[in-house]
Each structure stands twice: as C-alpha cells, then as structure tokens.
Amino acid sequence: MSALPISESEAARSVPGPWQVADGVLVADYTTSNMVKGGEFVARIIDAAEELNHHPDIDLRYSTVHLALLTHSVGALTELDVELAQAISEIATELGLG
C-alpha cells in the first residue's frame, strides 16, 4: 500500500462503518462486552498493525475501544490507514463486534 495522501472523502468511502473522518483523522469506536474482551480486541489490532508496520492510536476505556488512524510521517490520510481500518473491521466482525 502507498503512503501517498488520499482525500478525506476517499478514505471515508473506502471503509465500512463505524469508521468516519473527523478533523482529518480516520476514527472509530467499538464497544465490547467488558474490558477483557476489549483487551483481546486491542491485542488482535496490534498484531494486524505490526504486520502492516502501521500503528493506530488506541484508547481502551472499560468496554469501549477508540481508534484513530493517520499516517503521521505524511501528516495526512493514506491508503495505509484505509488498509488498517479494513483489517480492524474484519477483526471486529470475527469477534462479533460489527
């Protein structure tokens, strides 16, 4: 995947809900049944991020996982962000979160 900037509208069109673009960042909130399940979700996200060598900002608050994606080295959204968001969405689906 490319680290070239993409438009906010292109990023928003490329990923399924609950992803949205807010202030130039691709964000999503997922709710799990409890903190343990949230931690398991975060662990799976970390594995996917390591495979892509592209790392999200993650905030785990009890059962809610807030994610923010932006290619910091470019200062914009890129296809890397879209690819990771798609991978996270697949993980969420596998875990019954979305």
Rank of each mutant, 00 (worst) to 15 (best):
M1E: 14
A3E: 12
L4C: 08
P5N: 11
P5Q: 11
P5M: 06
I6E: 04
S7R: 03
E8V: 09
E8A: 15
S9T: 15
E10S: 14
E10A: 13
E10M: 12
A12L: 05
R13N: 11
S14V: 07
S14A: 14
S14K: 12
G17C: 02
P18V: 00
P18F: 02
W19Q: 08
A22L: 13
V25R: 09
V25G: 01
V25A: 02
V25W: 06
L26N: 08
A28R: 02
D29S: 05
T31V: 11
T32Y: 01
S33A: 15
M35G: 05
M35N: 08
V36D: 04
G38L: 00
F41H: 03
V42H: 06
A43S: 15
R44N: 07
R44C: 01
I45T: 12
D47G: 10
A48H: 06
E51T: 03
E51R: 00
L52I: 08
L52D: 08
D57I: 06
I58E: 01
I58D: 00
D59K: 10
D59I: 08
R61I: 13
R61P: 05
Y62R: 00
V65D: 01
H66N: 07
H66L: 03
L67M: 04
L67Q: 02
L67C: 00
A68P: 04
A68V: 02
L69F: 07
L69S: 04
T71Y: 03
S73L: 01
S73I: 07
G75D: 11
A76R: 03
A76M: 02
L77F: 09
L80Q: 05
V82E: 04
E83D: 14
E83M: 10
E83H: 12
L84A: 02
L84H: 01
A85E: 02
I88A: 04
E90R: 14
E90W: 10
I91H: 06
E94F: 07
L95F: 13
L97V: 06
G98Y: 03
